[in-house]
């Protein structure tokens, strides 16, 4: 393979706190796709929680920290469509013409969701093998960016995988950041509806390029006593490599 491409991993706060396994899978997927992964250790969060809570000053402060942390001019890759979408939106938080806005725009231009980045490098193919019926959850923050298309191309190209269609394919899971706690009833209602659609085609597993949706959907399902077999797409891609010799 050609010279490895250096990329910086945006870990995301959820992986930092709960799902180190997803981040490890993301690193292995990137390395398999010919990347040399760097991990800027000073990273914290992208700033989105404050944006959804309406605290723009706090959001700006945390984005500034991210700009400083990811200053090296290499692609920044995250196993999270949501954080990527927020960082692409972040320039709008700063005054037009300001240096911060320019820096945010520069970061926005080189931040990528994991599957988008990998699919672009591999032409959409993933050389794994796994017998499974898979339903793909399309997170809202994958709208318009080509993310879910990349997820479905990669997962669909795994030898043995059948993609199961999902009704209301782009419906929101009901997480929505602070919405999930300020509007508990609606958040739960939307989560239950989403889950019904996701499992409607009897998949073996649900995958998502966004951990926040999964944390919410799995949390609801577990509380209701009916665990949901759902994983981050990075884990599925990584595990499918074990099926190859």
């Amino acid at each position: 393979m050609a010279q490895p491409t250096r990329v910086a991993l945006l870990l995301t706060c959820l992986c930092d706190a709960f799902e180190d396994g997803v981040a490890r899978a993301a690193v292995e997927v990137l390395e398999h796709a010919g990347c040399e992964v760097a991990f800027p250790a000073d990273q914290t969060c992208c700033g989105q929680p404050a944006y959804t809570a309406g605290d723009l000053a706090a959001a700006r402060a945390v984005v500034r920290h991210a700009l400083a942390t990811f200053g090296e001019d290499v692609p920044v890759v995250a196993p999270a469509a949501s954080c990527v979408a927020f960082l692409r939106h972040a320039p709008a938080l700063f005054d037009e013409g300001s240096a911060e806005r320019a820096a945010a725009a520069a970061l926005a231009a080189r931040v990528h969701e994991l599957c988008e980045f990998v699919a672009q490098r591999t032409g959409g193919a993933w050389p794994g093998r796994l017998r499974a019926r898979v339903a793909v959850h399309r997170p809202c923050h994958a709208r318009g960016g080509g993310t879910w298309q990349a997820v479905e191309r990669l997962v669909g190209s795994i030898d043995g995988v059948t993609l199961v269609p999902v009704a209301e394919s782009e419906a929101c899971c009901g997480f929505g950041g602070v919405f999930s706690v300020t509007h508990p009833h609606l958040s739960r209602t939307l989560g239950v509806l989403r889950t019904e659609d996701l499992v409607g085609g009897a998949p073996d597993v649900v995958v998502s390029p966004d951990l926040s949706c999964l944390l919410h959907l799995r949390g609801l399902a577990a509380r209701a006593g009916r665990p949901l077999a759902a994983r981050h797409v990075a884990e599925l891609l990584r595990d499918s490599l074990a099926g190859t010799a």
Binding site: C13, A41, D42, Q43, T44, C45, G47, P49, A50, Y51, T52, A53, G54, D55, L56, A58, A61, V62, R64, H65, T69, V178, V181, T182
Partner: peptide, 29 residues
Amino acid sequence: IAAERARGVAEGTAPGPSLAAWEALATRP
């Protein structure tokens, strides 16, 4: 909608949950 939310927080007409502790940590690695 996000801008209205921010205005409600800034003007005190619709205060959101406090993220002060989170902000303090997220800016200090």
